[in-house]
Computed example of a mutant assay.
Amino acid sequence: MRIVNNFILINLAKIFFPIFFVIFFISSVILFIRVASVTAVIKMSFLEFFELYFYTLPVMLFFALPITFFVAAVITLSRLSQEYELPVLFSLGLSSHYLLRFFFPLSLILSATLFIFSFILIPASNQFYQQFLNEKRKNIDINLKPSEFSQKLGSWLVYINSFENNRYGEVVLFSKQSLQGEVFIVADSAELINNHSIFEISVSNGSAYLGKEKMIERIDYEKLITRLNISTNYQHNSIWDYWASMNNAYIERDTLENDRKAREGAKVLRNFATYILVSLFPILSIPLIPLFGVMHPRFMHPYTYFFIIFSVAFFYGCVHIVSTYFPIHGILPTIFLWSIGSYLLFRQFIARFF
């Protein structure tokens, strides 16, 4: 059996690593775009850019590894079936249950790795990511570009037409979150000063439009100064404190502070359900690997790729629904139904014949 194990393992590795590198490359491009969006306003060095990128790697690996393993395992068995190598092994006495025993230790190791990623590395990297951005905001170097739309500074959308001698010319500011409601400011020029993340925007020769109920108030000025705090006052907590904060999802939202804590707790609770289900996906889906991969090339048509896409999309769709609407009570039913359903399908369509 050691020869058979090595044979299947070698074929699995030949498919796993190319698929993983493709997914890793595509995910890296997406992460680079996400990190690059931070530099739209905040200037950072090349090393700082890659520092932010590495903080996002655990999340990408967490979602890429289980999908890659499942896809590679199914395609491996499918190719061995189409090349008549699995039918030969079955004719020599190998049973389909042997494949379950072969993939179980690999799935167990992968699920354990995913639990380490989800409950330790991802919360730690996310906190380092937020802490890094908060430190950069405290000493932010403005990177506003002339004639470019959708540039954001705190709660303000900013448009400038020119930049010369440390002053911005023909400036437009818009905010929905000011004390006066919606505010629209136009000015001939502006100057921005950063004092430890407290920004002072001094605009000259313009007009401010204040949007109120069924009316707009206009104020003309020679000089107007607006201050805003773009620091998030982020506090780095331990991993234990991070997961303990999900209890705040059930507190009464009677104050703004409690409302903020409740929303953060609900987010952590959703992550908790998502991480558990995705981490268990390799183990729960072991019966689906031979179900989709094993076939008799003469009598069965290979619908492998369709089954892979459908099962992965269906599982992650269930994870999204459970984590959003039933983050606590939906975990065990999902685990039970997915595992039992997968095994019953395996017994019905594979174990009876192979």
Rank of each mutant, 00 (worst) to 15 (best):
Thr113Val: 06
His97Tyr: 11
Pro87Arg: 07
Ser91Met: 01
Ile75Gly: 10
Ala73Trp: 13
Val88Ser: 15
Gln82Lys: 15
Pro87Ala: 07
Phe90Met: 04
Ala112Ile: 11
Leu89Asn: 14
Tyr98Leu: 02
Leu99Asp: 12
Glu85Ser: 10
Glu83His: 14
Ala72Gln: 10
Leu99His: 10
Arg79Ala: 01
Leu99Asn: 06
Leu100Asp: 03
Phe115Leu: 14
Thr76Ile: 04
Ser91Asn: 06
Val74Ala: 07
Ser81His: 13
Phe103Ala: 06
Phe90Ile: 03
Leu106Val: 00
Glu85Arg: 08
Gly93Gln: 03
Leu106Gln: 03
Phe90Glu: 04
Tyr84Ala: 09
Leu100His: 03
Phe119Asp: 05
Ser81Ile: 07
Ser118Arg: 00
Leu108Gly: 02
Leu77Glu: 09
Leu86Met: 13
Phe117Glu: 06
Ile109Val: 14
Tyr84His: 12
Ala72Glu: 02
Leu100Tyr: 02
Gln82Met: 15
Phe117Arg: 03
Phe104Cys: 05
Phe103Met: 08
Leu99Gln: 08
Ser81Glu: 14
Gln82Asp: 14
Phe119Tyr: 04
Phe104Gly: 02
Leu94Ala: 00
Ile120Asp: 13
Ser78Tyr: 10
Phe104Thr: 06
Glu85Gln: 14
Ile120Phe: 14
Leu89Ile: 14
Leu100Val: 01
Phe115Tyr: 14
Leu80Glu: 07
Ala72Met: 11
Glu85Pro: 09
Phe102Lys: 09
Leu94Ser: 01
Ser81Asn: 12
Ile109Trp: 15
Leu92Arg: 07
Leu106Tyr: 07
Ser118Lys: 00
Leu89Glu: 15
Thr113Arg: 07
Glu83Thr: 15
Ser111Cys: 05
Gln82Val: 10
Ile120Thr: 13
Leu80Phe: 04
Ala72Tyr: 06
Pro87Cys: 07
Leu89Thr: 13
Phe119Val: 04
Leu92Asn: 08
His97Trp: 08
Ile109Ser: 14
Leu100Ser: 04
Glu83Asp: 15
Gln82Tyr: 12
Ile120Pro: 03
Ser96Asn: 02
Leu92Phe: 09
Thr113Ser: 14
Leu100Met: 04
Tyr98Glu: 05
Ser96Gln: 03
Ala112Pro: 10
Arg101Thr: 01
Leu106Ser: 00
Gln82Phe: 06
Phe119Pro: 01
Ser95Trp: 04
Phe117Lys: 04
Thr76Tyr: 05
